[in-house]
Design a protein around this nucleic acid. Structure first.
Length: 492
RNA sequence: CGGGGUGUAGCGCAGUUCGGUUAGCGUAUCUGGUUUGGGACCAGAGGGUCGCAGGUUCGAAUCCUGCCACCCCGACCA
C-alpha cells in the first residue's frame, strides 16, 4: 500500500485500476478477461442486489433460475439477436477430458464431442422464451414477471475490471404480456426502478432515455436506458430495459388464447443491470485517496478505531466503549465495524479505511474518553469533528444521511455542468475534446449521420432523453431539420 | 487483430546496454524489544523454476531464435 494513487488527469485508467485493486474490491484472475471479486467487493454487490431484489419484488416480480448452457440452435432463432451476440460467445464442444497419450497432462477426448454445441449464456432471452412456450397457453397465464440473478459470459476483445469483464454477474428480468401497451409500461416501470436505485442508493444522477436504433439491444423494438457521467467526462450506460415486441414470441412460437378464443403472440420485455454498477460507483465518486462509498450501499458504513494504550486497563475501557458505540449504531441498523488490531498503528488504519471508502470513521482515545467525546471523520469531504459520546448513534445516523445527500448533490452538479448545448459543429467537436461530458445537440434521426459523427468524433448518441422538450432545430452535422436535442458523449 | 509496454521473492521494482563470485533493493511476512492522536523504529530470520522452450558459451536474468501471459491505446461491446 506504499504507492500513491496517481492523479486521474495523468492516467485515468491507472487511477481506476488502483482503486479497484488497492480498495480491495477485486483482483485480476488467472482467466483472461475475468476477475476475482474479493469479499469486500462482493459484499458491495450483495448490498446492491438486496436493494434491487426488494424493489423488483415490490413491483410484483419473482425470481427463478434458468440454465447456464444454451443449445446453439436456440440462439439462432431470432435473427437480430444472434447477429448481436455471435461474435462474443464461449462455446462448449466436448464434455470429457482424457490423459494425454503423448504424456503430460490431459487433452480433450475427441470421442466426447457434443451432438450440438452449447453456448455459455451471453444473456438468457432464448432459453427463457423456449421455456415460456411451455408455460403459456391462455391469457390467464399472463403476465409472467420473472427475474433471475446469474452470471453471463461475453467474450469481449478488450476487458476492464467491473466495466467489461468476460464473465459478469447481473440480474435479468424477462416478462411476458398479453398486450403491447402492458409490455411497454413494464419496460418503462423497470427503467424507473433502475433510475431510482441509481439516484437514491448509488448517489448517482442518471439521464433516463431511449437508445437510437444503432445502440439498441439486439432483438429489441425499443431500448430504454439510464446514462451516467463519470469524473473523466465519459458516459456510462448503467442499466437498460427493453421492449422486445413479439420478436421472441415469434422466434419461439409463444402464443396464448385470448378472451375471444383467438391465438395471439405474446409481448415481451427484458431488463438488466450488472456488476458494472460497481465500476460506475467507483468512477463517479472516488478521489485520489481511494474509494468513496455511498452510505446506503457501503459494505460497512462506519469503522470504529479505539486507540491502543500502554495501559491494558485503559485499552480495555476504550475497546468496551467502542463496542458500546457499535451496539448503539447496530440498533439503528447502521453497519459498523471495530478495528482493534493491536499490531497496526492508527495512522495506518486511517489511510486503509479511506482507501476502502468507509463513509465514516470514529476514533476514540484516552483523552476523548476522559472528555466524553470521539473524533468523527467523514470520507466524502474529509472533515473531522469532535462529537459527544452521548447520542453518538443519532449523530452518526444524521451524518450518514448527510453524506449520502452530499455525494448525490456533488455528482449532480458535476453532471449538470457537463451537459453542454451547441448548434455549431466546430464547437461540438471542441467540447468533446476539451470539456467532455454530454453534448446536447440536434440530430436528423438517421443512422448514417450517427455513424458519421461516431467516425469523426468517437462520440455516440447516449440517449434521447425521456420527457425531452421539443424544439425545432437543425442537425449538428447534416443540417437537416430536427425536432429535439439528443445527448452525445464518448462512452465506456 | 494492429500499435505501445511489462514479465526477476506475496506486492512494487533495480540489475539486461557491454555475459563473470553466493541475484539485489523497498515493502510485506516471522522472532525479540521499544512504540502507538495520520501509513513507527532497532536488531535478527525466512522467502527465488530471473515468464516458458530451445540455442551460443568454460560460464546466461543478461546474447540469439521461437513461444506464452498480462497491462495500456484502438477496432468490438453492458
Amino acid at each position: 500500500m506504499s504507492k500513491e494513487i496517481t492523479s486521474r488527469n495523468e492516467d485515468y485508467s491507472q487511477w481506476y485500476n488502483d482503486l479497484v485493486l488497492k480498495g480491495g474490491l477485486a483482483d485480476y484472475s488467472a482467466v483472461r478477461g475475468c476477475m476475482v471479486i474479493k469479499p469486500y467487493g462482493y459484499t458491495l454487490w450483495e448490498n446492491i442486489r438486496d436493494v434491487l431484489d426488494k424493489m423488483f419484488k415490490d413491483t410484483g416480480h419473482v425470481n427463478a433460475y434458468f440454465p447456464l448452457f444454451i443449445p446453439k440452435s436456440f440462439l439462432s432463432k431470432e435473427a437480430d439477436h444472434v447477429e448481436g451476440f455471435a461474435k462474443e460467445c464461449a462455446v462448449v464442444t466436448h464434455y470429457r477430458l482424457k490423459n494425454d497419450p503423448n504424456g503430460g497432462g490431459v487433452v480433450v477426448d475427441p470421442d466426447a464431442k457434443l451432438e450440438e454445441e452449447l453456448i455459455v449464456r451471453p444473456t438468457s432471452e432464448t432459453i427463457i422464451w423456449n421455456t415460456y412456450k411451455s408455460w403459456i397457453q391462455s391469457y390467464r397465464d399472463l403476465p409472467i414477471l420473472v427475474n433471475q440473478w446469474a452470471n453471463v459470459v461475453r467474450w469481449e476483445m478488450r476487458t476492464r475490471l467491473f466495466l467489461r469483464t468476460a464473465e459478469f454477474l447481473w440480474q435479468e428480468g424477462h416478462t411476458a404480456h398479453a398486450t403491447a401497451q402492458e409490455a411497454v409500461e413494464e419496460a418503462e416501470k423497470m427503467l424507473e426502478v433502475y433510475a431510482t436505485f441509481a439516484e437514491e442508493f448509488m448517489a448517482l444522477p442518471v439521464v433516463r432515455g431511449v437508445k437510437s436504433p444503432n445502440e439498441r439491444f439486439a432483438g429489441a423494438i425499443e431500448t430504454y436506458c439510464i446514462e451516467a457521467l463519470m469524473q473523466d467526462g465519459k458516459a456510462l450506460q448503467a442499466g437498460t430495459s427493453h421492449f422486445l415486441g413479439q420478436n421472441f414470441a415469434k422466434a419461439f412460437d409463444v402464443t396464448f388464447q385470448n378472451k375471444e378464443g383467438k391465438q395471439e403472440l405474446v409481448w415481451a420485455t427484458s431488463w438488466g443491470v450488472s456488476t458494472r454498477l460497481i465500476g460506475a460507483l467507483i468512477m463517479a465518486h472516488s478521489d485520489d485517496q481511494g474509494l468513496v462509498m455511498p452510505p446506503k450501499l457501503a459494505p460497512f458504513q462506519v469503522v470504529i478505531i479505539p486507540f491502543i494504550s500502554k495501559n491494558p486497563e485503559e485499552t480495555a475501557a476504550l475497546k468496551d466503549k467502542a463496542d458500546e458505540i457499535r451496539v448503539a449504531l447496530k440498533s439503528r441498523g447502521i453497519r459498523a465495524q471495530i478495528d482493534d488490531d493491536e499490531t497496526k498503528r492508527p495512522g495506518f488504519k486511517f489511510a486503509e479505511y479511506e482507501m476502502k471508502g468507509y463513509p465514516v470513521r470514529i476514533v476514540i482515545g484516552p483523552r476523548d474518553l476522559a472528555n466524553g467525546v470521539a473524533e468523527v471523520a467523514r470520507r466524502d469531504t474529509k472533515e473531522k469533528q469532535t462529537v459527544s459520546l452521548e447520542n453518538i448513534d443519532q449523530t452518526i445516523e444524521n451524518l450518514l444521511a448527510d453524506i449520502q445527500n452530499n455525494m448525490y448533490q456533488k455528482a449532480l452538479s458535476y453532471r449538470e455542468e457537463h451537459i453542454t448545448k451547441t448548434d455549431n459543429w466546430d464547437e461540438f467537436v471542441n467540447i468533446l475534446d476539451t470539456k467532455a461530458g454530454f453534448v446536447a445537440a440536434h440530430w436528423d434521426g438517421t443512422s448514417e449521420t450517427e455513424d458519421k459523427i461516431k467516425e469523426l468524433t468517437k462520440a455516440t448518441i447516449r440517449c434521447i432523453p425521456l420527457n425531452n422538450t421539443l424544439e425545432d432545430g437543425k442537425c449538428i452535422l447534416s443540417g437537416q431539420p430536427s425536432k429535439q436535442r439528443v445527448l452525445f458523449a464518448r462512452a465506456y
